[in-house]
């Protein structure tokens, strides 16, 4: 994959997987054979390369919520434990 200019990051295999696996024009299903397991292996492969257990977060808020709560708890604990 080409990159040019100052800002082009090197395209990694993860970039390719993200861009290629579920894009492009689709042909009606009755004309194509199914190559089973492409989506599943694609997900596992991406996860393995990225070193993750899970692959895609569908939104940031779910995750944000958990982290903010944990962070909030820490802060509060510090506040409560602080000498008066």
């Amino acid at each position: 994959m080409n990159t040019q200019g100052n800002r082009g990051s090197k395209c990694t295999l993860v970039d390719l997987l993200d861009r290629i696996l579920d894009k492009g024009v689709i042909i009606s299903a009755d004309l194509v054979i199914s190559i089973s397991d492409i989506p599943l292996i694609g997900v596992n492969l991406r996860a393995a390369i990225a070193g993750m257990d899970t692959m895609v977060k569908y939104g940031m808020m779910e995750d944000l919520d958990k982290e903010i709560r944990a962070w909030g708890r820490q802060k509060e604990k510090a506040l409560l434990e602080a000498p008066e």
Binding site: I20, L21, D22, K23, G24, V25, I26, I27, L31, V32, I33, I35, I38
Partner: peptide
């Protein structure tokens, strides 16, 4: 126009 990855016409 890219065709979806893994498309085989039968």
């Amino acid at each position: 126009i890219p065709v979806k990855f893994g498309t085989v016409i039968k």
